Amino acid sequence: MTRVWDVPVHDSTRVRDARVAAESAADHLGFDEARRAVAALVATELATNLLKHAGGGQILVETVDAADTAPAPLGPGAAPGVRGPLPAGDQGRLVQIVALDHGPGIPDLPAALSDGWSTTHSLGAGLGTCLRVAHDFDVHSAPGRGTVALARIGAVARGRAPVPGARPASAAVRAGGINIPFAAAEQSGDAWACVRAADRVTLLLADGLGHGAGAALASDAAVRRVRECAHLPPPELLGQLHTALRRTRGAAVAVAQVDLAAGELGFSGLGNIGARLRSGNDWRPLLSHPGIVGAHSPARLPHHRLPWTSDSVLVLHSDGLPSRWAPAADAVSAAQDPAVTAAVLVRDASSSARPARDDTTVAVLTGPPPKGP
């Protein structure tokens, strides 16, 4: 089940809560003492930065599969992206820590990522430390809108510090997401997964009906089944999921699949999962069919087929995100980690005047980052 530690950071006492959340997530994955300490350090630094520079914010800690967030190679025979040694099993999972705020933003991000930089007369080791010790690290900051920082920590140390937003040139498709349980519950009824099978990359988002453990059982069953049959096209996948979820309360599910060889995106959905595809500067909604996977499904599901190019971006979201969200011009970028894009979309669409009514999950699929000079 999707376990998320949602920590609001509005005073210094919550910095400890963020650290404990990261330690708990690391313990859940069986990390050794050294790697638990790294997760705790990153959470502490990010939470402290929220207070110092933004007047507070939110820390989200969860565990993610390394395979879900790893880049997919360009095609047959392409070398996979190197991101450090990751053993199988639970040690192939990562602790993901996201800090988001509605503060003033960081005026000079490259400087902020270097050791010794500070605007508050501190040691200036926060973001620079996170950059050095995290397996993945990325930051998005916009003046007047706030900052999102993301770090992932694995069970083993990586060989060298990552470059924010960087991905190997062989990465044809990258995925990432964030999950925020309703009312800071321990379990989310939403779940997402990205599965690679030969030339196909399949992104799934499931929203179990309601909240809590029962909803989580349904979405978790969808994730398990899609990992077993990701070679099937989206309509057939939904048929498999419909059978797998019959003994659960059911879920709204969307399945998007990129065929790397054909340069095509296939999409099928059942229920109220939102989906939008960006090509160039244009956004196009992808419509799901009414119904509930596991309970009410039509005999035949529509299968949308659209071109997938290097600049395409796909966003799937549950109904915790407003259906009419409008991304800022800089919110979606192929240069940043897809999970950062997901967090920016959630941050920009949220406010105290518009509280979430349900679990909120956003999963993003993007093409490769632009090549450097």
Rank of each mutant, 00 (worst) to 15 (best):
A70S: 15
W192F: 14
T69V: 15
A169R: 09
R145Q: 13
G56R: 01
L113N: 00
V223W: 14
I106N: 05
A171F: 04
S352E: 15
L245E: 11
A78L: 11
P181I: 06
H304P: 00
G250D: 00
T361C: 13
A191H: 11
D359T: 05
I106L: 13
V340W: 04
L321W: 03
W117C: 08
P235L: 14
A54N: 04
G154A: 12
K52V: 01
D90K: 12
D358T: 04
P285D: 15
A343N: 04
V64D: 09
A244F: 07
V226P: 04
R354Y: 11
D115Q: 13
K52F: 00
G128W: 03
L41R: 13
L109F: 03
H231W: 13
A261W: 05
A172I: 06
G124L: 04
R225E: 15
L217P: 10
E186P: 10
G105D: 01
L51K: 02
A356L: 06
D348S: 14
G103K: 05
R284A: 15
A244V: 08
A252K: 02
T309L: 06
L316V: 03
A349F: 09
I273H: 06
G75N: 08
D11N: 13
A166E: 13
G210E: 06
G280H: 00
A328I: 10
A175N: 11
A339S: 14
A175Q: 03
Q187G: 09
A353C: 05
V4W: 00
T243A: 15
G210I: 03
V362A: 05
L127A: 13
V42E: 01
I273P: 12
D11Q: 12
E228I: 10
A47D: 06
V315T: 00
R160G: 10
G154N: 04
P80N: 06
